[in-house]
Computed example of a mutant assay.
Amino acid sequence: MTLQQSLLLSRRGFLAGACCAAAAPILTPVTLAAAPGDNRFVTIVLRGAMDGLDLVQPYGDPAFAALRPKLGLTPQTGLLDLDGFFGLNPAASALMPLWQAGELSFIHAVSTPYRDQRSHFDGQDMLETGGGDKAERTGWLNRALAAIPRSDARKAIDINAARELILSGPNDVDSWSTQSNFTLAEDEIAFLDRLYAGDEAFARAMEEAKKTDMSADALYGDAKRGAGIAEMAGLAGGMLREEYRIASFSINGWDTHVGQKAQFRKAVGDLSTAIVTLKASLGDEAWGKTVVLAITEFGRTARENGTGGTDHGTGGLAVLAGGAIPGGKVLGQWPGLGDDQLLDRRDLMPTGDVREIAAAMLYRQFGIDPDNLTGKVFPGLSFDKSSAYLKG
């Protein structure tokens, strides 16, 4: 049997194997952990480098319009004004009631310490391990379990066959595989196209795979993808309403090099669905004791590129939601978008550490001692109880 025949006989296997090789998960695992008390904490990893300048647009910055002539909006062209300087992308309109209720905030110009090659793989590893040691293979959220005061029940359950790095580590984890199928996002499909472009047999098999029935219901099925995200978030919320107190899952689709408007709208819809569904499934009482933190491996270039997208950058955006946060604010120190204010004259300059946000929320929700936060959970991080992210 030739390589070409073998590939064509198993198109679904080909796609699954290719995605595994690319470290871009198709299925989104939900990981949950038990902890004492009634406070809840949810992390959402936005894989692919979410463009924070598109989600929360600094339309009041005089340099923004020139950097984003096609992607940039104003309140006159559909942007949802937040505070007279920043506005929310209309694709996230489902989140506006949370903003108005003081249950949603955004933190601009934040990043991990990662500054090397803007690699998704390395960037996500640092985001999930919470440190600068590339050899570290435990996640900061797993380490946090051991630092929670009175944390007798450190059991976690992973609602998938594979565990994400953020909650990997020595603390016990139970796994349970969901039957839900999540579709490939457009950035994942584009990655596979690029990955196999130089190999005629693999490229041909990829094109054949996209022409099968899988194209309609799994590769490009937006309705099915949306339903899967809602089911995943609903499951997490339901279990957090019971004995679990910590959850983590990912949303893919943020690598918007080409045709960003359409692709970003879908990804933002997924994020909005996840947060709104979490609130609904938790109920008012539990939601009032919940913090949701959505983070990404790095931001994107300040300038849009020639193909209607943006490339890998540095400074990004974190999203905070929940009834337990100081909401209705755009936080962080805004660096500006002038040429001399950009990092390497191309990226939003980071002025905050995304790990400090996570540390502040762990302190707020579970009272983890600051010495443990800086010594065990996020080694080397500077954090104290006066963090701006705790004020409100």
Rank of each mutant, 00 (worst) to 15 (best):
L3N: 08
L3E: 08
L3F: 04
Q4H: 04
Q4V: 13
Q4W: 05
Q4F: 07
Q5E: 12
S6L: 14
S6C: 05
S6Q: 10
L7V: 04
L8K: 02
L8M: 04
L8V: 02
S10V: 05
S10Y: 00
S10A: 08
S10Q: 07
S10R: 06
R12Y: 14
R12H: 14
R12D: 13
R12L: 15
G13Q: 07
F14M: 13
L15H: 05
L15E: 05
L15R: 12
A16R: 10
A16T: 07
G17K: 01
G17V: 07
G17D: 02
A18H: 03
A18G: 15
C19P: 01
C20W: 00
C20M: 01
C20A: 02
C20H: 00
A21Q: 06
A22I: 09
A23C: 00
A24K: 07
A24V: 09
A24F: 09
P25Q: 11
I26A: 07
I26P: 01
I26W: 07
I26E: 07
I26C: 07
L27N: 10
L27Q: 11
L27A: 11
T28G: 06
T28C: 13
T28H: 12
P29Y: 06
P29G: 11
V30C: 12
V30H: 02
T31S: 15
T31Q: 14
T31G: 12
T31A: 14
L32H: 02
L32P: 02
L32T: 06
L32W: 03
L32N: 08
A33K: 01
A34P: 00
A34E: 03
A35V: 03
A35S: 01
P36H: 04
P36T: 06
P36M: 04
G37I: 09
G37K: 03
D38R: 01
N39M: 09
N39R: 14
N39D: 08
N39T: 11
R40I: 03
F41G: 10
V42Y: 03
V42N: 06
I44H: 13
I44A: 11
V45I: 12
V45W: 11
L46T: 10
G48I: 14
G48R: 08
G48E: 09
G48L: 09
A49D: 02
A49L: 04
A49R: 05
M50D: 06
M50R: 04
M50Q: 10
D51M: 14
D51F: 12
D51E: 14
D51Y: 11
D51H: 11
D51V: 13
G52Q: 15
G52K: 13
G52A: 13
L53M: 15
L53V: 15
L53Q: 12
D54A: 15
L55A: 03
L55G: 13
V56K: 14
V56H: 10
V56Q: 12
P58Y: 09
P58G: 11
Y59A: 04
Y59H: 07
Y59F: 05
Y59G: 02
Y59E: 03
G60T: 05
G60E: 06
G60I: 12
D61N: 09
D61R: 08
P62E: 05
P62C: 08
P62F: 10
A63Y: 04
F64M: 11
A65N: 06
L67D: 02
L67H: 11
L67R: 06
R68M: 05
R68H: 01
R68T: 03
R68I: 07
R68C: 07
R68L: 08
